[in-house]
Amino acid sequence: MKRGGETMVIHYKCPNCGDDMHFDAKTGALTCPACGREDHIDDFPQDHIQEMFTDEEVNEYHCENCGAVLLTDKNTAATKCSYCGAGVVLADRLTGAIAPQLVIPFAISKEEAIAGFKKWARKRLLAPAGFMNADRIKDITGVYVPFWLYDLDSDVEVHAIGTRVRTYVKGDYIYTETKYYQLYRDIYLKYNKVPIDASVKMDDELMDKLEPFPYNQLKDFQFPYLAGYYAEKYQYDDDELFPRAKSKVRKFIDSFIYSTMTGYTNVQIQDKMIHTKKLNAYYALLPVWVFTYDHNREEYLFVMNGQTGKIVGKPPISLGKVAAWYSGITAGVFLLFRLITLAIAGGWFS
């Protein structure tokens, strides 16, 4: 795919009418927006894939349709021509040693994403009324975000002291009986495809909240999935992100450990040895709709899982609504208390 110092730009041309095709989230096929032709990705005729080579050093790509310069940064792997809208894939950025192995294609179309976002915005009870209408979506972009999916092996050895506490009353005294146990666990844990996002641009916390992605939709990577969307290549390799993967499963391991020590009033860990090994790390592109939203001249960012539709992001908060909810709940609870008080007080001597 790569030739000399040049970079390849790929267009998927419609075999019928020659327009630029893109990957359709609903049908899971390459679709022509002009004539409606659909082609399955595996069957797409090779001679309709147009490749163009540009000079890598210049870091400038040209749309083969209109000749416009494709404005990309060096991490963009798929984009749209900002002039004619053609979906293009910058193939060299996803080939060779850095080729993605897996992809989860979009299952939610742009229209569904917008509808889903509006519905979600309506449920933000503390957001200002202007936000709940969700009519100020500035931009919506389907992005394939680079992730590393780790298969991890963990050997865990734990020593702990567990206590069982029983209290009982005898005569004038309350007795507290505490039984101490020495606990030992030797555990083997395997976690499959723990996702860590490898993009600098994407906020790690937002990406963690977007999970889980449905792994039954994982496909072997093919370029046509990217047509019509934006894609980025990874900016951290799997070794650089391994510590993050380890700390992520560390939380899972801790809660697994506690789940093996039930039946105790209190468990105090004395020492814990966790050895986590990387078995595999798959480079995968996962589908995310990114919304930018204008509210009161401020820009808000929201992301949506392109498969499940789960939306994450901090909406603006209206102080007026916070005050209204606060006083409403206070008044309701207070009224309830008064009623209970009257019911009890009234019942004492009747």
Partner: peptide, 22 residues
């Protein structure tokens, strides 16, 4: 993400130590 098929507790011991009553 846990692989339920292969993950397992290889060994576990709960040894009674003592009782304290207050």
């Amino acid at each position: 993400y846990l692989d339920h098929a292969t993950s397992k507790i290889r060994s576990r011991r709960d040894i009674y130590l003592r009782t304290v009553v207050t």
